[in-house]
């Protein structure tokens, strides 16, 4: 069973993603910020990470950079309320960029494709 780490500072979003993705058959753990995400990479060992960009403290882009230092090939999906970071070249290090919406079908589809390739 594939493991997904959901990183978001918003509690409700974390809950929503967790429940929806678990229903899809994944094992899901959550992290409330970048630091916790880096810690859980070692303990939880996820197959894929969804990463919110706008977080207090270490933001998603910085977290992505740190993740890449450890695990070059781990699929990471950047999520944000809007595509304002899309032109930021550092976000290109992610495998996908998904704009947050209440309809999670796009996110689910992206995860499926990335894990399939894996």
């Amino acid at each position: 069973m594939k493991k997904i780490l959901v990183v978001d500072d918003e509690e409700n979003i974390r809950l929503l993603y967790k429940e929806e993705l678990e229903e899809e058959g994944y094992t899901v753990d959550v992290a409330i910020n970048g630091q916790e995400a880096l810690d859980k990479m070692n303990t939880f060992k996820p197959d894929l990470i969804t990463l919110d960009i706008k977080m207090p403290g270490m933001d998603g882009v910085e977290t992505l950079r740190r993740i890449r230092e450890v695990q070059r090939n781990l699929p990471v999906i950047l999520c944000s309320a809007y595509g304002e970071y899309k032109q930021d070249l550092t976000t290109w290090a992610s495998d996908a960029y998904v704009i947050k919406t209440s309809d999670l079908n796009e996110l689910k589809g992206t995860i499926r494709i990335l894990l399939l390739n894996d």
């Binding site: 979003i13 809007y82 209440s102």
Partner: peptide, 20 residues
């Protein structure tokens, strides 16, 4: 933009859970 941004997350929660 800043207002929209702040509204976006709660809206995603509302919409997401309503779908559930």
């Amino acid at each position: 933009a800043s207002v929209a941004h702040e509204i976006k997350n709660p809206l995603v929660s509302i919409g997401g859970f309503t779908r559930r």
